[in-house]
């Protein structure tokens, strides 16, 4: 349904143009949840904003690639046509539900904004109540009249989801939808997203830094590092047997039931900025199995591997865990 090919995003910083996303490709099918995982600076959020051609900064723009949505290439749409896509075919929810709701407008009207923006004024109120009910909000009519500050964080996020799904788009982009919420509230939102995915046959692109969230909600995972996808696989396979040293390191730095201070793992170094991107494999300065001559020349391609999935490591498959050098 959604097919992103070779997407690049750049940010103009003075005269310079910084490529924050480089050649990213992925697809999302109906009723499928796809996770885009990465740390800050990996370009995961920028990739998501690019699908709507809508960026938080006026200096960012799509620099290349194609975005196919249900057979139509969105690249080359006019500003007006893009607006027709936003909200109608693709909905989006964001990280901090309190700052993404207008504090001065009752939440019901913000949900209705999606309908009105696309000229669906008739029966908007009834539809809003129906949506709030779908979001498992108690007494929808009452909630609709409330202002954002009168609702809890979890309820606000449900309002944002309702607004995003008002026109039944085929795709929902969720950018860190639960990061700002309490763990118990997060669980409720994740359950809701899962239910909506199944019941509405909704495609979900979930942007997150939390591997736990991905593991519990997504079917496909793309791991991003420094603006590129370094590994892609079906969720079970990726967690069972990550191939790229970065994915392995990322999984290793999660705190599990046996993690105690003293044995905690972390990836040394830090994510490179778009200005000083290393030549060759972008991860090589931090990589435990870096091989001079092999890893620092020419950007490695994303290669499909036998047994499913793909990754960008030239030494892929040599180690089960590159950090412990176990074969």
């Amino acid at each position: 349904m959604l097919e992103v090919r070779d997407l690049s995003v750049e940010i103009a910083a003075g005269r310079e143009k910084l490529r924050v996303v480089e050649g990213v490709s992925f697809s999302v099918g109906r009723g499928e949840a796809v996770g885009l995982v990465g740390e800050s600076g990996s370009g995961k959020s920028m990739s998501a904003f690019a699908i709507l051609n809508l960026f938080p900064s006026p200096h960012a723009r799509i620099a290349g690639g194609d975005i196919w949505l249900e057979g139509r290439n969105l690249r080359g749409l006019s500003a007006r046509e893009w607006r027709g896509v936003r909200g109608a075919q693709i909905g989006m929810v964001f990280q901090d539900p309190s700052s993404y709701l207008d504090p001065l407008i009752p939440v019901g009207r913000q949900v209705a904004e999606t309908l009105r923006a696309h000229g669906r004024n008739e029966g908007a109120e009834a539809r809003v109540l129906e949506l709030l009910d779908l979001m498992e909000l108690p007494s929808p009519a009452e909630v609709a009249r409330k202002y954002p500050h009168e609702l809890s964080g979890g309820m606000r996020q449900r309002i944002l989801i309702a607004a995003a799904l008002a026109l039944r788009p085929a795709l929902l982009i969720a950018d860190e939808p639960t990061t700002a919420l309490d763990v118990t509230v997060q669980a409720g939102i994740l359950d809701l997203l899962t239910r909506l995915r199944v019941e509405l046959d909704l495609g979900i692109l979930l942007i997150t830094h939390d591997l736990g969230v991905v593991a519990e909600t997504c079917q496909q995972v793309h791991v991003m590092y420094a603006g590129t996808i370094v590994e892609q696989n079906e969720v079970g396979a990726l967690f069972r047997q990550p191939r790229h040293p970065y994915s392995q390191g990322l999984l290793g730095s999660m705190l599990g039931p046996d993690s105690r201070a003293g044995n905690l793992f972390s990836i040394p170094g830090s994510v490179p900025g778009a200005r000083d991107m290393p030549a060759g494999c972008r991860f090589h300065p931090r990589c435990p199995i870096f091989q001079p001559g092999l890893c620092d020349t020419g950007e490695p391609a994303l290669v499909d591997r036998t047994g499913g999935g793909s990754d960008r490591c030239r030494r892929s498959g040599e180690f089960d865990n590159a950090w412990r050098r176990t074969a």
Partner: peptide, 8 residues
């Protein structure tokens, strides 16, 4: 129970 676990 609510804490996500990296286990698909």
């Amino acid at each position: 129970a609510a804490t996500p676990v990296p286990d698909p």
